Amino acid sequence: MDKITIIISAFGIGIGFGLQNIVNNLVSGLILAFEKPVQIGDIIEVDNRSGTIQEIGIRASKIATSDGAEVIIPNGDLISHHVVNWTLSNNNRRIELIVSVKYGTEIEKVKNLLLDLLNAREDVMKEPKPLVFLHNLNGSSVDFRILFWADDISQWLELKTHVLSDIFTVFEKEGIQMSTTSRI
């Protein structure tokens, strides 16, 4: 009888630990339903995974990644882990570029060209205004940090491509040589 009691107790403890995770996810699902820190359609990042929330279930939520995969995330992770919600209060996204030009290029000329380029684009937000900073001085290059905002997070990669293309065109027209250390 003692052996059976020990075996049943071991099973009970094992089932208890298994149910603890399920109950945690169920309670987290209820918290998500009432607090609404994330909603269907939000673009989030959690544990180095990012995507658009497609479904919020009672136990787990489903996000669609930009690669086309669907990832099932336990609701407990959405409550207990650090979650970045890119679209909680708005759809804006800041874009950062680092552009390097050859050493000896006029710093103010480059800053003014970059600011004029950004201010001329309709798809770059005017508030917060675009910024260009002198980022770093190297032996062979001068690095500029460019910050600007896209008003639609779904279009930020396309906007980044257009701005990079514009920078290349303007620099080529003005005779400004980019350094091989440019990184984006």
Rank of each mutant, 00 (worst) to 15 (best):
S140D: 13
I73R: 06
I98D: 03
E106V: 09
S28F: 01
F11C: 12
E172C: 01
Q177M: 11
S9L: 15
Q177S: 11
I15N: 10
S140H: 13
K160A: 06
G139I: 13
S140I: 14
N21R: 11
M178L: 15
R145S: 15
V23F: 07
V38C: 03
D151S: 08
D123K: 12
D151K: 06
H135T: 05
I53A: 04
I79V: 11
I53N: 06
V170A: 03
G104K: 11
I56N: 01
A64D: 04
H82Q: 13
Q155H: 12
N25S: 14
I73W: 02
G68V: 07
E127W: 11
I146H: 01
I13R: 03
N92K: 15
L26C: 05
L164H: 04
A69M: 14
D123G: 11
E158A: 15
M178Y: 00
K173D: 13
I176M: 02
R121M: 12
G51F: 07
L157I: 10
A33M: 08
L157N: 06
G68E: 03
V84A: 08
S100L: 06
I107K: 12
D152I: 14
Q54R: 13
P37C: 06
T161C: 07
H135Q: 08
V142H: 02
G104S: 02
N85Q: 02
I15V: 15
A10W: 00
T181H: 12
E127P: 00
N21V: 13
V83D: 09
I15R: 03
I72S: 04
S61L: 12
I7R: 09
G51S: 10
A150T: 11
K126R: 14
G29Y: 06
A150K: 03
G57P: 08
T169F: 01
N24S: 07
S28V: 07
K111G: 02
L26W: 07
T87H: 03
G16P: 01
L78N: 04
R183H: 08
T161Y: 05
L97E: 04
A10H: 01
N90Q: 04
K62Q: 14
P74E: 08
F171C: 06
I146K: 02
Q177W: 02
K160M: 07
V27F: 03
V101A: 05
V142D: 01
I56R: 10
S154Q: 09
L88G: 05
R183M: 09
N91C: 11
I40S: 02
V23E: 00
T87F: 06
V124H: 04
N75L: 09
I167G: 00
F144A: 10
D123C: 07
T87E: 03
V99Q: 05
M125Y: 00
V132K: 08
I44R: 12
D2G: 15
Q39Y: 00
K126D: 11
